[in-house]
Design a protein around this nucleic acid. Sequence first.
RNA 1: GCGAGGGUAGCCAAGUCAGGUCAAAGGCGGCAGACUCAAGAUCUGUUCUCGAAGGAGUCCCACGGUUCAAAUCCGUGCCCUCGCACCA
Length: 952
Amino acid sequence: MDLIESKDMFSIEEKWQKRWEEDHLFEANPDGRRKFMATYPYSYMNGLPHIGHGFTSLRVDFISRYKRMRGYNALFPFAFHCTGLPIVASATRIREGEEKQLSIMKDMGIGEAEIMRFADPIYWTDYFPRRWEQTMRRLGMSIDWRRKFITTSLNKSYDSFVSWQFNRLKDGDFVRKGSHPVIWCPKDGIPVGDHDRRSGEGETPTEYTLIKFRLDDGLILVAATLRPETAYGQTNLWVNPETRYIIAGNGSERWVLSSEAAMKLAEQGVQLHEEGTLEGGSIVGRKAYSFTMKTEIPVLPALFADPGKGTGIVSSVPSDSPDDYVALMELKRGAKEGSIKGAAAQAVEGISPIEIIETPGYGRLPARKVVERLGIRSQSESAKLESAKEEIYREGFYKGVMVSSLPEIGGMPVEAARVKIKERMLKEGIAALMYEPSGEVICRCLTRCIVKIVDNQWFLAYGDPEWKKLAHEAVAGMNFYPAFLNRQFDNVIDWLKDWACVHHTGLGSALPWDQKWKIESLSDSTLYMAYYTIAHRLKSTADGMAQDISFYDYVFLGRGSAKEAGRKSGIDPAKVEEMRREFLYWYPLDLRVSGKDLIGNHLTFAIFNHTAIFSRELWPKAFAVNGWITISGSKMSKSAGNSMMLDTALERYGADVTRLTSAYAGEGFDDPNWDDDFAESALKRLYQMQEAASSASGEGMEEDDVDRWLLSTAASIYGRYTDNMEQLLFKSAVKLALIDMQNALKWYARRKRGKVNASALRPFIRLQVMMMAPFTPHICEEIWHSMGNAGYVCASELPEPGEMQVDAPALLREEYLESVMGDIDEIVKVTGIKPSSIYIYTAAEWQKQLLENETGSGDPAARKRIMSAAKGKAAERFFKKYAMEKGQGRLEFRRLISSSFDEREFLASTREFLEGELGASVVIQMADDSDIEDPAGRSGNAFPGRPAIFVK
RNA sequence: GCGAGGGUAGCCAAGUCAGGUCAAAGGCGGCAGACUCAAGAUCUGUUCUCGAAGGAGUCCCACGGUUCAAAUCCGUGCCCUCGCACCA
């Protein structure tokens, strides 16, 4: 057979993909076999797959193909996720002609003419699933495509499934109502998710504590702080002299705060009634009573008091706040230089920071320390102040301890003190809460966003301790790859809080009992693995049918009857019954493979939801998680210019090489590395496999020791291969199946001096092709076929590892030979001799017996008897060597060799080979031969399992 | 800070749970040789240091310990990656 030209790879791949398709090879239906169902979390349909998607989904394909070849009925389904905001947001951007979005579309290879069609979100849900399927097919995925579907109300059947799921969750009290803070656009009147923001992606609501201070006329100055635990360090208040504050009634109190703050508080359930205004400048110099300090503190001017942030009034803690410290220092300078006069100057002079928190490495006045280190002189150095604040905030929060002299919170860690003091103040009515975005968020409509407390928000109650308990139980019963993940999942379950599971906008399914809400994208995807089991029997389109709740109740839970479910859904009860049986055949899910980004959300949600709805025997059995792919060592990111789309890889390398490079990229939890150099050289390795196959044709010969070695090596490699495959360690498996097998073949060809035996080679290659089939199925089919095998290699059955014969002495013999050759090589290298003759002396008979005795019974009588055969000098030398070998821990290995075969006899059989390899004549003798030829007296160096050598 | 994982030769990475055949698999890169007019590709060898005899020295983040024996076990410290959410 000719070598596969690389351009032929594409046609070979296409050919086999077509045949698999025609023969419905991967369409899995329930039958009498053991089943194996593995899934990949469907990807979001706002882009095309890159090699990272390829890496994770291929892991499902590798294991599915392997399991199929181990006699399992393997199911690998696939679907497309369309729920949520990003598609809608991106479509809007296209409609608005936003440059960035248009160029993203162009980069995906979408032509000018077509781009505008993406202004309609629905077009995305048609286009991208098509492209994904195309790419996945081209990659040679063994997917049962009959079961594909899209999510959202665009698919009536799936929509009804989600609706059923939420009804069941609600019945079990797993969905509850509450309120929670969201980032909110006051102009549009909607929550603004990351995808709807012009800027401020990743910013979240943060909680400020509003602390009250009383002016002598009874007005309440309301200062906002992120750090209530610093209340005992208050020295003064800051107001912005250029701001007009408002006076607003709140119950019996009259608050002073910025008008922006009043507007925000209104969205957070605090109703204020404006009664008048107050110039910031007019409060400066007055005194306010601090309920914490139990004394009056001065109100001073500061430009950093931003009316748009918090309340525009700040309580000053110069010990711990760089802003406060710098502002205070500036005022003090002003007072000294005379630019500030009178009462204000006097007040300023009387202020000094109060030590309240001890932070390792920062002492008790961290603000001063950092400000001085960074050389900040003025409030206007905002960038430096930002980094100073961030540093102190983080260090102080995690490592700081309140100084012991403080009342109430003395000696407590900052973290705990904050909670304690805040709760006490709230209880006493001298504080309130307010939320602000953690950073500036600008809506796409260019409005600055605020935080709103949304009422009537529906939550999945992941914070519920009882539900957590169930989830922990599920984890305890699961397998994880890698195994340590159980700890990670247990931990996530513990910190997970209630999850807001509905949105106002985006694509999705309506909340069944409150149709104005859309179920959010992570929440409609926790149970759909079950849906796969029947998806191909339901019509997955907009004109499909919404199934009745009793239908799912029966199919998934066995509640009610097939007759009833059929009647309500208009489906033949016999069909309903079949679906019930099909679900029970495939479920529970055997394996879900995902990237590590889904641990903290989707995968854990899936565990939670399964425990809520299904009985124990239907909970998922295993999760596998892998890292993020890197390209030649650096993180894949579009902005950094190194990313690779799956289509690009396929065009460049073809499916098999893309698959092989992915498999070899890495395993376990570490980030895998896509190695272009490996990809470049991968094809030649596949050629080699094919070449070897073609050389395996022709007449066989009688099997000799080396043939047996080859087959034993294959058996031994195969045993390790199955272990690795079962553990999803695909890189190791490829190394064994491709590289180690090929290296064995190279040694074999060398040993046989070109006279390879087809009857050994053929089963060897046949096994290798089968082992490689999960990774490079196309070329393996080609070779399989060319070797005259019937059917498909990917439908053939791999042997039981235990069934394969391993000739252990045969393995030892070759290992021994290699080590003898290694010793000779080293001697030649070190001495620089060009050898003409090489003498090899194997150990004397008595030495072998002695070794056997010493490592075994150690019988002194036997020892004495054996020693009598040895001459004194030789025995002495032997024991020296013996001690050394023992020290190295090699004794048992030497004994194993020496007792497994006759060294001299074996070496003699390889003489021709050795002479050819070494280019010298080789003489093999035993150290105690009577007619020994030993010109340099080296034979005494012999040791059982390691012969003496003399080179000349 | 809490939680999870990690630190192995030029780079990547196996080995660590079950200590000794470990100067430590394999890949990539480098070097040398073969082939070639040449380059690329491919093949072979080699790739810690010293060595004219298979040896010795040093080595698996650092330091200390356990052991006849430590990359592997124990302790302490340093460093790195990821998660800590309402978003797919």
